[in-house]
Write a protein that binds this DNA or RNA. Sequence first.
DNA 1: CTATTTGTTTATCC
DNA 2: AGGATAAACAAATA
Length: 279
Amino acid sequence: MPELAEVEYYRKQWLPAVGESVCTVRLNPGSRVFRETDCSALEEGLVGQRLENILRHGKQMAVVFGEVHWLGLHMGMTGGLSLVEKGGPARPGDHLVLLMESGRSLVFNDSRMFGRVRYASGHEEPAWWAGLPPEPLDRAFTLGRLECYLRRQPGTPLKTLLLMQKYFPGIGNWMGDEILWRARIKPTVRADQLGEFKRRELFWTICEVCRDALRVIGTDWSRPPDDWLFNHRWKPGGLCPRTGGPLRRRVIGGRTTCWSPEWQIYRGKRSCSTVARPS
DNA sequence: CTATTTGTTTATCC
DNA sequence: AGGATAAACAAATA
């Protein structure tokens, strides 16, 4: 599930516990989500520490305890966070439970275990947090930067490019489809086939979809309006909210991609710039 | 039983 | 070497 906005929603679930201290850490070290983590260090590091801050960057989260303890969370495909009022019995997939002084629990659940829990200590930001590329809504995410990415990946289909976290941290499968649908670009168009105007349009649309997603899903997980592609892309027989025409689905770059052939008519600059010249 | 999944990493092939 | 593609991870759901 979790892309940029869903991760932001999960961040908000834990946020009310900022200021509280950790009493007990419950985890199963054998769980796959701890595959790169020293669970003893995590446990010893967090117990007794005050929850200071919860940060998000793209789909990554960093939870800071007592200034120097860094808990890294990635939700994978099915991960999620919840704040449980009374520490009830752990449900299946509850891999990490932090019992707080208030009696509440911070829970990380991930049934498929593609997610990840990391731990590091020190005043420096850990390697997995430092030096992440700018998010689409950061000041540093500029049109020039997008054009640089497009030049670096000339043959990559735009859908595949948008899913690359080193360029567009936070964008996932549904946001990628939503962006290309709003920009009316066919998802298979190569990165080097975008004309100057369309590059600007793509840049603007990336920012717009991120803003909309954070506003609608990132605050309270509201159902997006029906004039987004979002509500139509999964249901069989779903129709394009702009044209009423059928939506198509095909695997592009290993991910099921949904688009509206009648609406996403931009196929690259070659196909629309060739004008016969008088000789 | 089959096919599907809002993610990422690693292996393999050209 | 480097880019594209497939496989792997693992569990829930239809």
